[in-house]
Design a protein around this nucleic acid. Structure first.
Length: 260
DNA sequence: ATGGCTGCAGGATGCAGA
């Protein structure tokens, strides 16, 4: 079972590439972030033609996440629990039946948090705290699950080409990384890091200043696995080809293979 | 990087992203 996550940076602007990629790679579950569109306007038909069931949690202009699956949805839920007043569309999850049980997959878009010290920074931390509480609950239920998405967290120095450029940035603050570690320490596994300890693997390259051409990237898109999912992990890949395509997203897809 | 692109809303330019 292949599960992929991709911050698409506007599904309308990226539709051709997204469809081409999905039809080539054929993930069973595909998580999008930053669809930047309302639910009723999401181009669901082109993905349904590829065999996907489509569920979205969209928003006009900003944010927005989607979950596409070749398996039928047993359950869908929108919004990260823990704050009913949160208006930003950053979380959608689905449950799917598999041989011998079920797997839960979430598509999440963790807040950027810049500039440091502002209300956006506080919102990022509050959101991370809610995500931790959510993960703890799901772990206590001993579920098989995958939390996939744009975490806006650079976990370690080796996850940036120039870590010194990110000192003072919300993505790389000690408090940000500490919260991310807390999440892992609950018992989650970063799929990519379980498969590779190498530096130099990135999922985002800024549009500015020739960042792609200079390989000035960061690794901020992650798939975190519960123990039952990690036990079935067979591989993880970053598909950086798409960053070289015409009109690319600034993020590239990350995917895993599970023996499911 | 004190931000050099990009998408989006709206109908000019400002905001958000990372």
């Amino acid at each position: 079972m292949r599960i992929a996550t991709w911050n698409i940076n506007g599904i309308r602007a990226r539709l051709d590439g997204a469809v081409q990629w999905a039809s080539e790679v054929q993930p069973e579950v595909l998580c999008f972030q930053e669809i930047k569109i309302e639910d009723g306007l999401f181009p669901r038909a082109v993905f349904e033609d590829l065999g996907y069931n489509v569920e979205t949690h969209g928003q006009k202009s900003f944010n927005g996440v989607a979950l596409l699956s070749k398996l039928p949805f047993d359950e869908v839920s929108r919004g990260l629990p823990g704050d009913d007043s949160d208006q930003q569309a950053r979380f959608i999850e689905g449950v799917f039946s598999i041989a011998g049980g079920a797997i839960r997959v979430a598509s999440l878009y963790l807040p950027n948090g810049n500039p440091v010290g502002t209300e956006k920074y506080a919102y990022k931390f509050a959101w991370m705290d809610r995500l931790e509480a959510y993960a703890r609950e799901r772990l206590e239920a001993e579920e098989m699950f995958v939390l996939a998405g744009d975490y806006n967290v650079i976990p370690e120095d080796i996850d940036a080409r120039y870590p010194e450029h990110w000192v003072g940035d919300a993505l790389f603050q000690p408090e940000t990384r500490a919260r991310y570690r807390r999440l892992l320490n609950l018992g989650l596994t970063c799929a990519f890091r379980a498969c590779s300890a190498e530096p130099g693997h990135y999922t985002f390259w800024d549009y500015q200043a020739g960042a792609w051409q200079r390989n000035n990237g960061i690794r901020i898109d992650h798939l975190l696995l519960s123990p039952l999912a990690a036990d079935r992990l067979e591989g993880a890949q970053i598909d950086k080809r798409t960053r070289g395509w015409d009109k690319p997203s600034d993020h590239v897809p990350v995917m895993i293979e599970l023996a499911v």
